[in-house]
Design a protein around this nucleic acid. Sequence first.
DNA 1: ATAGGTGCAAAGCATTTGCCGCGGT
DNA 2: ACCGCGGCAAATGCTTTGCACCTAT
Lengths: 168, 168
Amino acid sequence: MVTVGEAMESRIERLCIDRGLKMTGQRRVIARVLSDAEDHPDVEELYRRATALDSRISVATVYRTVRLLEEKGILERRDFGGGRARYEATEHGHHYHLIDIDTGKVIEFEDAEHEHLMRQIAVRLGFDLVSHRMELFGRRRSEVAGAPRTASSAPPADEPIDGGGKSR
Amino acid sequence: MVTVGEAMESRIERLCIDRGLKMTGQRRVIARVLSDAEDHPDVEELYRRATALDSRISVATVYRTVRLLEEKGILERRDFGGGRARYEATEHGHHYHLIDIDTGKVIEFEDAEHEHLMRQIAVRLGFDLVSHRMELFGRRRSEVAGAPRTASSAPPADEPIDGGGKSR
DNA sequence: ATAGGTGCAAAGCATTTGCCGCGGT
DNA sequence: ACCGCGGCAAATGCTTTGCACCTAT
């Protein structure tokens, strides 16, 4: 029988080790926080969650770690408007984001065709597509207009951003 | 016979007047710079061009004006990576941008279908699409592989970004 | 042992803002 | 005349960094 939870090496810690990164206590904690995150936290939020597990961590370290992991391709930086960078682990194939402009919640979705299309456009312009980004900003539909949608009319969302500041 | 060039009211000045904005000397200059711009300048660049026409302008005013015009829907803010906001006049229907990651040059292109597609996706997720953004980052193709393209193999580009700083 | 990591506080950058005199309408 | 505008410099907010100490490897 093996102890589960906090004791086990996190997915991201594994990736760090694989790339030969020195694993310090704070990196282990940050790696865990990132591995457990199911949303798109910004540095402040990561710092909050990390210090909750081990208070011997400074924001500077979170910034440094997050930058390092991004350079190593373990993390991806996102900009959903609001001035702060948000992070998510690189993994489960490309997906895109739709941001609820009223609540700040982020919905992920896939669009297999999209990347292919973008690649074609780039080629047509004489370029090889290296990367691309796309974000949708929307407002939840007031389901006044009859048309009943397939499933529950409240699609899964994730984290709120900020109470009500404008984007900049 | 009418004097042309600097003396005439610029396109953006017209828009400002139409929306009842008070037209000061500095706004007139900034409006002209924006009207004449065929690229996507950042605030620093706008400031440079504006002071070249009339030195009695401060960066603060450029920031204030650019923000005001964005709120009025006359300008659109862009983020091509690099930490500074870039601006372009709202006009000639939606188009997208492809950024040459080696030179920083920006190529504009259209994709009529795209917006429609994004709108559909949003609806499928239970949202009304309010806005969306998309940028492609690419590298000019080394035209080794035979396939001759239609026209000149050097598509039109515009402005360089910055000599060689990393995106952040 | 030793290259690299960390905390702390100061520095950096792009952008915003308070204050107050000045200029459009 | 009046309200908004612009200059200046200080303030902000996120992120980076210099320095001296500490710790994985």
